[in-house]
Amino acid sequence: MADTLAPEAVRESSPAPVRLRGRRGGRLVAGAAVAWLVLLIVEWAADGRIWLGNLVGIVPPAAFVLVPLLLAALAPLARGAARWRSLGAAGLALLLGLGQSGVDPAALWRAKPRPGTDAVRVLAWNTNSWNQMLGTQDHFYAFLKAKHADVYLLHEYQHVTADRKGRLPVDDLARLRREFPGYGIAVRGELVTLSRFPIVGQPAVGPARAVPAGADWRTTYRESKVLRTDVLVRGRVVSFYNVHMPVWNSMPDGLLSPAFYRHMRERFAPRRAQYEGLEADVAANRHPVVVAGDFNATAAMADLDPLRERLADAADVSTDPYPTSWEEGGWKPFWRTDWAFTGNGARAERYSFGDPEKLSDHATQDLWVGLPRGTERGEG
């Protein structure tokens, strides 16, 4: 009798460990989905309001789509109420995070843009300390000239000290004039704007307005992270904003270093002041505007929200469903930290990121801008 019943007992008891593992896996998925949703809510409450909220910039923005999709795909591991809880939390997280992801599914079926013959071509680029460490100066200038841009918005017109912690001024104006004859040149701190059209104004923006005339370069560098240049394009004044916002992190120190968080805390207020100065100036400007540069912010960060609400993101005409610009030359450029916006009648007609040819860790921004017809003279 015992020999006959033993196999049945084994057969009846063997699914229990499987069911146990299934329940544990289901609880794990449900817990992860709810935890991700709670994390999104906490991030939303903190980002842009307290300095620690900038930590969201570490996360590749695509994760705000990929994580909830993965959790939804794993939801069948849960059973009963846990399964629906997993699906509900994942679905809500996807809905909340889509705008922070930088993903644009519409780009997959968007027609390739064809800029008009009178479009203004703009190149915006972080030059990586004016090509101090990569390539040669001849390659650097040949690269710039080959873009044939009407307006160049260049950042990091500077060199760095041996420890890469200090910044030094650069004087390359003679070569700039030689390489770009006929272009107007505007310089403020680390920002250089070249324009084939006449420059008619250069109003200070944000904290730069408080910098006295004749201030030393270091003061100008620290306070001037936006260079507005008003140019006359076929009888109409257009304002080009050359932007390089302060970096919010100190990645070389590492996430476990107190210096990393001290840097975040110290940079939060000056960085916010630069953004607010730019936002206020754009809001008061009635000219067509083009705002482009290295914002050191991703789609997941709240820093860009006011600009994205007021202006049009040039990526709205891109055919890339997930545009990225940094870190070029690294393992993978998962982040878009370089942005371009248009408004007040200016509109992006074509926009793409370009290969920096190993001259920088940032891709170039190639932008063609259409302008409203009509004439308008004077300074903004």
Rank of each mutant, 00 (worst) to 15 (best):
A45W: 12
R373N: 12
R308Q: 14
A90R: 03
P212H: 11
F268D: 07
G378W: 10
I199H: 04
A284R: 15
A81Y: 06
A81S: 11
E379N: 10
G91F: 09
W109V: 15
L227D: 03
G214R: 09
V247D: 08
F341M: 04
A315R: 06
R49F: 14
A9D: 07
R21H: 12
G57C: 01
A269P: 09
P333Y: 01
P288C: 09
A142M: 09
R267F: 10
R23G: 13
F143C: 02
L307S: 01
R85C: 12
A284P: 06
P76C: 06
H155M: 14
Y183C: 09
S325R: 04
R209C: 07
P198N: 12
L176F: 13
P306Q: 04
L311H: 00
L69K: 00
V56C: 03
L256Q: 06
D355I: 10
L168P: 01
V226E: 04
F260A: 08
P323Y: 00
K358Q: 14
T117A: 15
L52A: 15
D163Q: 11
G25Q: 15
A213W: 10
T375D: 09
L173P: 01
L153P: 02
R262Q: 15
M264D: 13
A45D: 12
R188N: 04
R79K: 15
R83H: 11
L87D: 08
L20D: 11
H287F: 10
L74Q: 02
R27Y: 14
F64S: 00
Q158N: 07
M251P: 12
A107P: 03
R222I: 12
L359Y: 10
D320G: 02
V103Q: 06
Y241V: 02
S257G: 05
T324V: 12
L39N: 03
Y157K: 05
E156F: 01
A73K: 08
E190G: 03
N54W: 08
L311N: 00
G206Q: 02
A162G: 13
H148M: 08
E190L: 08
W44K: 11
A215E: 09
V200D: 01
R377W: 07
A2G: 06
A284G: 11
K147V: 03
V120M: 07
E223F: 09
H155C: 13
A297P: 02
P306Y: 00
V170W: 10
P306R: 01
G343V: 00
L40E: 15
D104Q: 11
R228C: 05
Y152P: 04
R265C: 10
D171H: 10
V170I: 14
A73F: 11
Y241F: 10
Y221I: 06
S250A: 14
L87G: 02
P198H: 11
F143V: 01
F140K: 01
Y157W: 14
V122Q: 06
R236S: 01
V56M: 04
L371W: 03
R286G: 12
W84Y: 14
T161H: 06
I41C: 13
V160H: 09
L232R: 08
L134R: 14
G378S: 04
R23W: 14
R19L: 15
A259L: 12
A75Y: 07
L70R: 05
Q274L: 01
G80H: 05
G184K: 02
P212Q: 10
L311M: 05
V29D: 03
H155S: 15
